[in-house]
Design a protein around this nucleic acid. Sequence first.
DNA 1: CTGTTAGCGCATTCAC
DNA 2: GTGAATGCGCTAACAG
Lengths: 332, 332
Amino acid sequence: MARITIEDVANEAGVSITTVSHVFSGHRPVNAETKQMVEQVAKRLGYRPNAIARSLRLRTSQTIMIVVPDITNSFYPEYARSIQDVIGPAGFHSLLCNTDAREREELAFLEEARSRRLNGVVFVGFRVEPEALRPLADDGICVVNVGGPVPGSTIDSVCFDDRAASAEMTHFVIDRYGSDVALIDGDAEAPVSRHRREGFEDACREAGVPDREMVVLLEEFDRAGGARGMRALLDREVRPRAVVCANDMIAIGAIDVAREEGLRIPEDVAITGFDDVDLATVVTPQLTTVHADGPRLGAEAGRLLLSRMTGEHDGEGRHVVVPHELVVRASA
Amino acid sequence: MARITIEDVANEAGVSITTVSHVFSGHRPVNAETKQMVEQVAKRLGYRPNAIARSLRLRTSQTIMIVVPDITNSFYPEYARSIQDVIGPAGFHSLLCNTDAREREELAFLEEARSRRLNGVVFVGFRVEPEALRPLADDGICVVNVGGPVPGSTIDSVCFDDRAASAEMTHFVIDRYGSDVALIDGDAEAPVSRHRREGFEDACREAGVPDREMVVLLEEFDRAGGARGMRALLDREVRPRAVVCANDMIAIGAIDVAREEGLRIPEDVAITGFDDVDLATVVTPQLTTVHADGPRLGAEAGRLLLSRMTGEHDGEGRHVVVPHELVVRASA
DNA sequence: CTGTTAGCGCATTCAC
DNA sequence: GTGAATGCGCTAACAG
């Protein structure tokens, strides 16, 4: 129960703690016999180096924090896994943190990252401005924002061109089904939703839909939100011919109620998603959606972060846009 | 860039570090004015207590580790989230760790937990015996194993009765479609798969299926594994009338290829899942499956862990079995 | 090749 | 009500 320390090992082995330290770190040559002996003693005693003490001394925890809004949306686990795949081999650990898209949690995790002297943070913010990341960068924490750049900082950023993608999808839908189209968006404030909404509006305007006739609903980025939105849409006097959804989960929810109501998809209503998560090919009909490559996004973010943490890159923040792709399947 | 320490604050405020420490901890009364002043200085300087130093001193990190085999299977994120929901309010943080069901990773995380002097670990092991948890318990780490108990230890455990559930499902299927039934299991070694396989075999035997005619395939616990398994099954001379799958992801994969082959479900083949993840109600036809309540499992695990970490309970490990339920939908 | 020593930043025991 | 001093366990000068 009383933890074995490096000192216990040193005493037992009859050497100094310095020697023990070095047999573990390899930072300086140690006599082969001594080394072996120390290793044996350590094993016998069940010694485990105290990572906390080491972190304190080294002033680095070799760990990063991955902040996501909803771990329940499979887009994020895949994305997170991909980050881990790139930073893990370099010897970094990671904390996966779920904010539920709440401002308080977002801020709390950011503070937490400072407290724990983390080496890096990859942040998907829904409530908090990217500006909130500046203090971290000032503390020397490497950060990449998933979203827009933070000018004049060392903060890197990665994103999809959500606005363009959403506009493309909307154009596609209008071409096929006419301008009687609605959007079920995911969230009033989150940057993603704003961008996807703007893209939708861009396309509508270009198609000559007057502003006042644009149908935009704000729900939540999940299946229940999609269901609510679809119900609201079906209650209207004129039902939309096509429904663009701000992500796949919403689209699934929309499909749920469309089918409940006996509507055929896409014959009666066309429905599109966004993200192209696994679910998209599980629903019937398979979702027409925007393929937003989560793993790719994560890998990109991981690479940026890693190059900064290793010191390979410093200076002004870089910005990379990950390409998306329209995937036309059966739902529209 | 140079981190502000408690000493900086003390100097700037013209008090001792002891005082600063106490205004933050509240562990001893501090003159109201002094207190306010210190707080102001701290804010102005952007002081953040160093959690690492604190952990070293206090010998507790207030954090736990949640180890899962596949963060990409939505069962686990939901489960993990639920653990966090119970331990978070008590002031504990958590690390979510993904092993990809690999022995090396499982062991590495366990060691990691010891190194980091974590307060608790909730472990879902696929490769490593529960016995491997003993050293953690010996170190004073609170641990709950998701699976069987570890006799004579302070390790708590939670599980579903996988074997019974699997047998129930198999019985149900045999009742409906006859004894021409196959199992696509998920993994040769993992305890879950073993139990689900045993349940399947129990039921087959009871139904009079001779051992040598039992069809049991071992694939992986994911969609691709299910697809492979189903293809193998369809290549056989006599195709099974019903296919029991060891989890929902496998079942989805099986459905994918059944539909590709133009088979009707359940008219031509019945297919069942296990877990009842979100996907189960997204596929067509909706999955008949065993509802294994991930959030409930997590909550139970979290409760056990918390009661131990707070010292409310100590002594012999407790074991709780979370009830399951057969959910009959359209696929069988 | 090995050991002594000085902190890393904080909480806390004594002493005042 | 406040402060000085000690040590949590470890690494890395520095000094043999």
